[in-house]
Simulated assay, not measured.
Amino acid sequence: MPEHDAHDAHDDVITELVVDHREVEELFVRLEGPLSPEDRQDALEHLVAELVRHSVAEEAWIYPAMRDRLDDGNAIADRETAEHHEVELMLKQLEGTDPHSPQSRPVLEALMTAVRGHVAEEERQLFPALRAVYSAEELRDLGDKVRTAKKAAPTRPHPGAPRDQVSRRVMGPFVGLVDRTRDALSGRSV
């Protein structure tokens, strides 16, 4: 299971998101290896929750920051949001399926490919672009906002939910509370 202690309360937003990326990659590697049915189900549930929380936080805070200061920020944020939506649709397909079933394997492989491509692009292009236009203090402030958003974010995919910044900031915590209640009632430990 990924180490959530790797995050530091003083990390800037880029460090925060890179740590998230590494945690997701660790879960991918686990899922690619031999696991017991219980461990595979646990890894898949953690993966779903991590990706949903990460996406909600990025859409609430990072993409608006891109729109605000990057020359082509609107186009980049629109593309990134569309990629998130595709990932969320795949997560919804995986939710509640048997992770050992042959039918789930192609969806999981497509998910891994999509997320790995998304992560590579963010780390190679978008994060350096953000560092170039935001001060260290602003990036730390965004890190605080992203950490707060992830704590309140949903833990399950909701591909039909509104994706705009205001909806993510306002509705995200409510949907997150509902998801965490469902998780507790079902015994899902994410």
Rank of each mutant, 00 (worst) to 15 (best):
P159G: 04
L44R: 01
E26V: 01
R188E: 09
G117K: 09
D11M: 13
E137F: 04
I14C: 08
D78E: 11
V175C: 07
Y134R: 13
R116E: 04
V107W: 02
L35C: 10
R188T: 10
G33P: 01
P99W: 10
H7M: 06
D71N: 02
E122F: 03
A153M: 04
L177T: 15
I76S: 00
F174R: 02
L47F: 04
L177M: 13
E109Y: 10
Q41E: 04
V48P: 00
A9L: 11
D78T: 15
P2S: 09
R124P: 00
A6K: 08
P157F: 07
Q41K: 14
P34D: 10
W61D: 14
P102K: 07
P159K: 04
V133K: 03
P37C: 07
D5G: 01
V115W: 13
A65M: 11
T81V: 13
V52F: 11
R140Y: 08
E95P: 00
S135N: 14
R105V: 15
R69W: 11
D72E: 08
T97E: 07
Q93D: 14
E95C: 11
P2K: 11
V19G: 03
R188N: 05
R131H: 15
L70A: 01
A9D: 15
E45I: 02
E109A: 15
V87E: 05
L130S: 05
